[in-house]
Amino acid sequence: MPLLWVKLHGMTQDGPTRRDVLKAGATAAAITPVLTQPVLAGAAAPSGAITLLVNGERHQVEVEARVTLLDALRERLALTGTKKGCDRGECGACTVLADGKRIKSCLTLAVMQEGREITTIEGLAEGDELHPMQAAFLKHDAFQCGICTPGQIMSAVACVAEGHAGSDQEVRDWMSGNLCRCSCYPNIVDAIREAAGR
């Protein structure tokens, strides 16, 4: 891992306006607060941090501005349930919920999600009790290799909550952002329809 960290400053700006700056290039004065020039870990200043609320827990994470939510989840919080397939918004493997809405975590910066409540696949079960959607995926054998499954399940939970699981066709339409290379689509549709209470 490269020893590049960002550093958090607090500065006050004159004038009526206020901005937050996450700074990963040259220092900008007069902007508040600032994450500055990447520095070697342990050098003069403390590492910078943003706060992410994930599965009900608050985490301080050190990130550069360019770190996506997906990479922050996987590599900083060790929440590796969320998968990286394409890293371009095309496969849906990285689907998580932000304030209850499904999003692709590869297409947003971690810092942009400060203040939102993120739910990942690790946050669905209640202790040892699976979420009904997880149980339905198991029952209907809705996966083979499993790489797409966490994204499918997160997307499916939202699909039902949105009221878009009223027919098999509706499920297919509204789950189209989640690809499955093992082509488990019929079983995925069955699982979602059952979890939605048909």
Binding site: V21, A24, A65, L109
Partner: peptide
């Protein structure tokens, strides 16, 4: 690497001088 700026007013955004990001 890039600077990330969070604008809280239109004037701020316009004078920040960078690429806007909305959904991203």
């Amino acid at each position: 690497l890039f600077d990330y700026v969070r604008a809280t007013s239109t004037g701020d955004a316009v004078s920040a001088g960078g690429d806007y990001i909305a959904g991203g």
